[in-house]
Amino acid sequence: MNIVVLIKQVPGTDNVKMDPKTGTMIRTGKDNIINPLDENALEEALRLKRSLKNVTVTVVSMGPESAMKAIKEAIAMGADGGILLSGRAFAGSDTIATARVLSSAIRKLWPVDLILCGERATDGETGQTGAMVAAMLDIPVQTYVQKLEVGDGIITVERLVEGGFERVQVKIPALVTVVKGINQPGFPTLAGKLRAKEVQVPVWGPEDVGLVPDEIGLKGSPTRVVKIFSPKLSRDTIMYRHDNTGRAISELINFLGAREIIV
């Protein structure tokens, strides 16, 4: 069984710089991490590798050269290999252009049985790319998955939805986006770290995945950022210190009444 895990390197902190001209993120930070939900996706792939025979796990990431660190870390955690999709022409891609690059790379790795990724990334937070990749590959997708079982040519999943969960069965090949509750990600091992140093991770550019400049980057993106601005975060706060007079509580009740929240 061939499993591809899509991972994204994201800033470990919230100090992200934006390019004021294009409105896209500048990715340079040193404290970058693997997107936390992608670690859950990786862990799920590694869980299947531990429980089934002949499972190969390949991580694929699009990003700057520094994203190699994320791929090496994934290998140190137990992935067999990885592909880095990198090149200046990829920069500024929106979710459609990114999905185009990822799906083209996956097609090159075909046959693939299962593609796993996090439900969303903590930086862009769109949660769109996974489903778009599935649409471009024309394979079934299941999103918000909190439990995954592999059967004979099918997978059965539990999707976390409003008010509960759904059980759905889909044929493979399929793409699954996972939520945090699916598992507890592991850690890199010493043996894994040593192996990660040895494993050659190819770097593919646009021509390697058969895409022309018009299909990728800003040019290949249907959306454009018009402007970025800082929202007003702080509110005018009415503050009370709790004491034995009961005033804080009665003022709160009055406040909620005046706003017609409680009657």
């Binding site: 979710t95 769109q128 778009m132 409003e162």
Partner: peptide, 23 residues
């Protein structure tokens, strides 16, 4: 931006090759 909307909209956008902005 429900689990349904957030799933079907990217699929449709990718099929039609058009842009989608989430949330």
């Amino acid at each position: 931006a429900t689990t349904t909307g957030r799933t079907v909209m990217p699929l449709v956008a990718a099929r039609l090759g058009t842009g989608l902005t989430a949330d």
